[in-house]
Amino acid sequence: MQRFPCPFCGLRDEREFSYVGDFGKVRPDTKARVSDAEWAAYLYDQKNPKGQSTEIWVHLPCQEYFKMTRDTVSMDVIDAAPLRKPAQ
């Protein structure tokens, strides 16, 4: 069982987390022209790299969506950072 660092809550085990998607995907402006191929790529294409991967995860209890970089071979967590500005 892996442990991930929620940028707000700290270290928790993987049962509290869910994978969301690749980091860096931006929803196309759907009122502009978006080709079927672009749209399909947005919905379905995932990089799924062997090795270092930067992804969006959510910590379910506190609903923090955050960016995490991890190694998909060694399972090491390299970095986790909030997507939002720090608490005021």
Binding site: C9, R15, L60, C62
Partner: peptide, 15 residues
């Protein structure tokens, strides 16, 4: 849950 005083948390929400 993996509860320990050595693992602080800013939140008291957990599974």
């Amino acid at each position: 849950t993996e509860l320990s005083e050595k693992i602080p948390s800013a939140s008291c929400l957990r599974l």
